[in-house]
Design a protein around this nucleic acid. Structure first.
Lengths: 142, 142
DNA sequence: TATTGTTATACTCTATAACTATA
DNA sequence: TATAGTTATAGAGTATAACAATA
């Protein structure tokens, strides 16, 4: 046997899983009427702490220009505000409103629920392995 | 300690890693001038075997209607053909041309290279854990 | 009747380049 | 000069509903 059995499998599995989980989350939270990327950003803000646009871009591995229209939409909905960063006035700090925090918490809870259900038969060791691989792939791609 | 330390982390990490790896792949293969989703589909076909549109949709966790324009584009480029499935004439089998196979193999190799580089310090056990978590999340979301 | 895939349609996702304000 | 973020722009990604062909 000289042939690799399953070339490309981690990254292809990653993309498949991302599509699948995004669709599931969107339909679980259909009443919020928010696209998947918005849920993702909100979940990243669910701890209530402010983050600069750049920090959010890093957290989601997207570009600031990708976030602009998304943040505009969430602002229009009353879910967040952009505050000028006092420390560096080129930056904006993204801050959830009370409404936004409630929605963000629902998104984060739906994600946590989905993980709990999916990972009921998964050991902490396997979970640690998952993060080791994910982190390695993410770090190499930055 | 009653608070979970890192709620939502698997799925958020998944989405971050997907964005990061897609961007890296696209720039590694910039000379092919293909968007990320095309590379993903081609890599899924790189073994040279034909697949129905439905099977491809399942492999990428997308809908057939999402694939239509993508397959049209790859057909226009001469990378694949749709053949009527003799066993079930409602179906189309997607088959790579020789040119398409060459491009698909480059995509699959770039993915394999990226994985090799990223996972050089990752143990087989960690890798197995990764797949256990990914599979659990994917299966729950179908 | 049910299923496969396309078409038509409507938005969202995403990045690059040029720009503004600030550092 | 360099950086943070937006604006302008262009194209790709995605799904739903309606449809045609086949089962």
């Amino acid at each position: 046997m000289t042939t690799a059995k399953d070339p490309g499998s981690e990254i292809l599995a990653l993309h498949r899983a991302t599509h699948a989980t995004l669709q599931t989350l969107t339909s679980l939270l259909a009443d919020l009427d928010l696209p998947a990327a918005d849920l993702n950003v909100l979940a990243n803000l669910a701890d209530g702490a402010g983050r600069t646009v750049g920090a959010l871009a890093a957290a989601t591995a997207t570009k600031p220009s990708t976030l602009t229209s998304l943040l505009d939409r969430l602002t229009r909905r009353g879910y967040l505000v952009r505050q000028s960063d006092l420390a560096d006035r080129r930056s904006f700090v993204v801050l959830l409103t009370p409404d936004g925090l409630a929605v963000a918490k629902r998104a984060a809870e739906a994600i946590a629920d989905l993980e709990r259900q999916a990972l009921v038969g998964v050991t902490p060791t396997q979970r640690a392995g998952f993060h080791a691989v994910i982190d390695a792939l993410t770090e190499l791609s930055q």
